[in-house]
Simulated scan of single mutants.
Amino acid sequence: MKTSRSLLLALVLSGALTVTAACGDKKDNGGTAPAAGGSASAAASPQADARTELINAFNKLNTVTLAYTANTETGTVATTKLNGSSDPVKKAASGSMTISAQGTQITADLVVVGTDVYLKLSVPLPGIDPKKWLYIDGAKTSLSKLGLGSPDDPANVKGLADAIATVERDGPGGYKGTFDMTKRNLPEASTAMLQQMGDAAKSVPFEATVGADGYLTALTVKMPAAGQVPATTSTTTFSDFGKPVSISKPADADVQPAPAALLSQFA
């Protein structure tokens, strides 16, 4: 029971950190994204133009199906790996998460269709059939605490446009700058962490790559330490833009209601 509780807390912490770091994960649709760090263009555009280009790249992620991966390292305390796919138009997303913390590893599978959330954990829970999906009413919880963004904003980038404090080009397809995370609409737990960062939360470094088709293909964000939470680096990539995605709810026979103890972790 103690082990299960610590693992669940690790899941919640990891999800909160992933969202706070705003790690998006998407890549280019079939093409190879131009590498960041190449030679600077002969005539660099003003920062305002770079900002517009990056905002447009963020927004394009919410218009097509895609695949994503996200890796988050919280100092030496925990690592999180998330991969999956999304269909923003149908408000559907799925993902598989692996969390390593305190010498323990957890895997979790997630399916979100509208406000219906289905979760399958690798850890045993009292009274729970480990072979079945746990159903969570997404209208009564926070998807961010599950490590996923809203189905119509799988990359959690809608709030990032307003959070761009500085940005400049960094070679072909590359951008670098800072986010003012205090300008984002974040869950209560994440807001509390930002407060502990102080002024550092207003200048969080990021690097981004935009593919030839204008989609954001990679985003790395380096969050400063917050209280007892070490500095966190999150890298997300996006790919397979517009390719067919199949995301469906599990069969009723394979689903059971999530227990109250678990729901309280995501309230």
Rank of each mutant, 00 (worst) to 15 (best):
M1D: 14
K2P: 07
K2I: 12
K2F: 14
R5V: 14
G15K: 00
V19G: 07
A22P: 04
C23V: 12
G24N: 07
D25Q: 09
D28T: 14
D28S: 15
G30E: 08
A33C: 11
G37N: 01
G37I: 00
G37H: 00
G38P: 04
S39E: 07
S45Y: 12
P46W: 08
D49W: 06
R51Q: 10
R51F: 08
E53S: 14
E53A: 15
I55R: 06
F58K: 01
L61Q: 07
N62T: 12
T63P: 10
A67C: 09
A67G: 14
A70K: 12
N71V: 07
T72E: 09
E73S: 12
T74N: 10
G75I: 10
A78C: 07
T80N: 09
L82T: 12
N83A: 13
G84T: 05
S85A: 13
S85N: 11
S85D: 11
K91H: 11
A93Q: 04
S94N: 15
G95K: 01
I99Q: 03
S100G: 11
A101C: 06
Q102R: 11
G103S: 05
T107E: 13
A108C: 12
V113F: 06
V113N: 05
V113A: 10
T115E: 15
D116I: 01
V117L: 06
L119D: 08
L121H: 01
L121A: 01
P124M: 06
G127N: 15
P130A: 05
K131M: 13
Y135F: 15
D137H: 09
K140Y: 14
K145C: 10
L148S: 10
G149C: 06
P151Y: 06
D152C: 09
V157N: 07
G159M: 11
A163H: 09
I164N: 00
V167T: 06
E168V: 05
E168G: 08
G173F: 00
G173Y: 00
G174A: 06
G177Q: 01
F179C: 01
F179I: 02
M181Y: 11
T182S: 13
L186Q: 12
E188Y: 13
M193L: 14
G198T: 07
A201Y: 04
K202D: 10
V204I: 09
E207Q: 10
E207K: 09
A208E: 03
T209E: 08
A212E: 15
D213R: 12
Y215D: 02
Y215I: 02
A218G: 04
V221A: 05
M223Y: 11
M223E: 08
A226P: 02
G227Q: 06
Q228I: 07
V229L: 09
V229R: 00
T233W: 02
S234R: 01
S234A: 09
T235W: 11
T237R: 00
F238W: 04
S239V: 04
S239Y: 03
S239R: 03
D240W: 05
F241G: 02
G242L: 02
P244L: 02
V245W: 00
K249Y: 01
A251K: 04
P257A: 07
P259S: 09
A260T: 12
A260S: 15
L262T: 04
L263G: 03
A267P: 11
